[in-house]
């Protein structure tokens, strides 16, 4: 099972990427908040394309508008100007074709881990049998390492475990794109590394297009095919893009020991410090 799904060394050249289908197309996206002091332009004419089955991470300083960008893709935040096309169709409202993993796990504490995942699965697969839906939930909970905690109440799980359920919930929707809003920002560094592995493990099998917001340089390199660097707001745009053509599946050790790793790191830190 696992062998089939592993991608064969996708060291994509520029040409190959442009041949691939565009999954997410952000065109001249502008976000303006009206404040008592006048208009505040968070994003101004931001353009970005994400290919099908690509994993990108977006990095930038706090308050640069990366979360705003993500919530706009999720449909939870209105678009002021420009448009976002998902698989060719403009985004107008939130929907389960975009699985979101929030920074706080946002599980419903009165439900069990299984029920939390099931709530979404019921929405996406209303026609299947109840057992089919349960199987989907159990499959993903198992994949994120919670095979023995199906019936634990979310409030009884540790924060790291809760975020695992959050990841399972997002994948179980079989979304077109996965949106991760600093998904590991609230976790300690050991748990964070664990969850990065879990995330990549599931992602390698599913090949869902994914966008992860982060302000952790190492995380952004480890996860992504491309790292998008956003300029500091106001009027933030895409400042620079770094390709990370490392082989997948990746292990932390291989990535860190790769001869180009410090070059990538240097590039990103250099951007963030200027």
């Amino acid at each position: 099972m696992s062998e089939i799904a592993i991608k064969e060394a996708p060291i994509a050249t520029e040409k190959e990427i442009s041949d691939k289908k565009v999954m997410l197309d952000i065109k001249d996206l502008t976000k303006i908040y009206t404040t008592p002091k006048g208009e505040y332009v968070v994003l101004e004419k931001l353009n970005l394309q994400v290919m099908k089955e690509e994993f990108i991470s977006i990095i930038g300083h706090s308050g640069c508008g990366k979360s705003t960008l993500l919530t706009m893709i999720a449909g939870l935040n209105d678009i002021s100007e420009g448009e976002i096309l998902l698989d060719g169709k403009p985004i107008t409202k939130p929907g389960p074709d975009r699985g979101v993993v929030f920074q706080s796990p946002s599980l419903f504490p009165w439900m069990t881990a299984l029920e939390n995942v099931l709530l979404g699965v019921e929405q996406v697969f209303p026609h299947g049998s109840k057992n089919d839906r349960l199987d989907i939930c159990k499959y993903y909970l198992d994949k994120v390492g919670l095979g023995d905690a199906f019936n634990k109440k979310a409030s009884e799980l540790s924060q790291g475990m809760q975020q695992r359920v959050g990841i399972a919930r997002a994948f179980a929707l079989k979304p077109k794109i996965l949106l991760l809003d600093e998904p590991f920002g609230m976790l300690d560094s050991l748990t964070r590394a664990e969850l990065q592995d879990v995330l990549l493990e599931v992602w390698n099998k599913e090949n869902i297009t994914a966008i992860a917001i982060t302000h952790d340089v190492d995380e952004s390199i480890f996860l992504a095919d491309r790292v998008i660097m956003m300029t500091s707001g106001p009027r933030a745009v895409v400042g620079d893009i770094l390709e990370i053509p490392l082989e997948r599946p990746r292990t932390r050790r291989e990535v860190i020991e790769h001869p180009d790793y410090y070059h990538y790191r240097g590039h990103l830190i250099n951007f963030l410090e200027h």
């Binding site: 999720a74 939130p94 699985g99 979101v100 929030f102 706080s104 419903f108 009165w110 709530l119 929405q123």
Partner: peptide, 28 residues
Amino acid sequence: NEDYINVAKVLQLSPTKKTFKIVLPATL
């Protein structure tokens, strides 16, 4: 909690489902 409401929006829960599955338990 705003996050709960956002999850409900992402999942496109119907108003009844949202009220009885999320809002009321959260308010109990």
